[in-house]
Computed example of a mutant assay.
Amino acid sequence: MTTWFTSDLHFGHARLLELSPVRGAAFTTVAEMNEGLIANWNSVVAAEDTVWVLGDFDMHGKAASLALLPRLKGTKILVSGNHDACWAGVRDGWKHRSRYLEAGFAAVMDFAVTKLPPLGPEASATRVLLSHFPYAGDSHDEDRHAQFRLRDEGVPLLHGHVHEAFRERRTSEGTWGINVGVDHWGFCPVSAETLARHLAELSRADG
């Protein structure tokens, strides 16, 4: 069994093809984008795997987009983002969590803590935080939703939200964050093993 991470699929978001040069270059229509994201997901994820979706599964929990969820392999866990109808920053967002659970998410939460696998027999697992939002940075000119961002206390962070703005960034405190959004990972989920290696490489590069 493999654990995967992804974010910012934005199923059904037609305008994103205009707003995002990366997305627009990859897909011509929203239907093509939806089908491409599903095919890419299922090409790497097995039925027994777990996939953490770090927010923005679609745009505001539309029925047509949530109906795509059962076509995606694996056990899916949602860490809600600002475009999900169940996000804590949306008025009465909690009332929509049942819709996401009924659609096929095994759990819905605002943030989580997990571990990336050890890279060798003598190595230890790496503790990471999971949130839709990075410690700092945005796809816009200013950081939005500051009150929903986790405090940087030195724990590496896996996140989404910033689309193609950056794939990884170190905070002023020296903590690495990695953007698992599909725009930086071939429109596919990225495995925990890949992220563990990448985080180790970033740490080594720090000297």
Rank of each mutant, 00 (worst) to 15 (best):
A136C: 07
L19K: 13
T171L: 06
A85G: 11
R99I: 14
D138W: 01
S131V: 00
E48Y: 04
R197E: 10
V30E: 06
R170C: 01
P121Y: 03
D8T: 03
G181E: 13
V79E: 01
T6L: 13
T29Y: 05
K73R: 15
F5W: 06
E164C: 01
S191Y: 03
V90F: 11
T2L: 09
D141V: 01
P117S: 11
V90I: 15
A64I: 07
R23D: 02
D152Q: 11
D56M: 05
V162D: 06
E102P: 00
L17E: 00
D58Q: 01
V22R: 15
K76W: 00
A14M: 05
E168D: 06
L16G: 07
S7T: 10
E122S: 08
L158G: 13
H184L: 13
A47T: 09
H132C: 03
G89E: 03
H13K: 08
L150Y: 00
S65D: 15
P117N: 11
G154C: 01
L54H: 05
I38A: 09
L101C: 04
R91D: 02
T3W: 06
R23S: 04
E164H: 11
V128T: 14
A85F: 15
S203N: 05
H132W: 02
R97Q: 15
W52F: 05
M1T: 07
R204W: 07
A192E: 13
A192H: 14
W94A: 14
E32G: 12
T3I: 14
E168Y: 10
V108S: 03
L129C: 07
H96C: 10
G137T: 03
L119W: 07
L17K: 07
G154T: 00
E32Y: 07
V45H: 14
P118N: 13
A103S: 13
L157Q: 05
W176E: 04
N34C: 07
L116P: 13
A165F: 07
G181W: 06
G93S: 09
V113Q: 12
T171M: 08
T50R: 12
L157W: 02
P117F: 13
V162L: 12
V51H: 01
P70C: 00
T171H: 06
T2P: 12
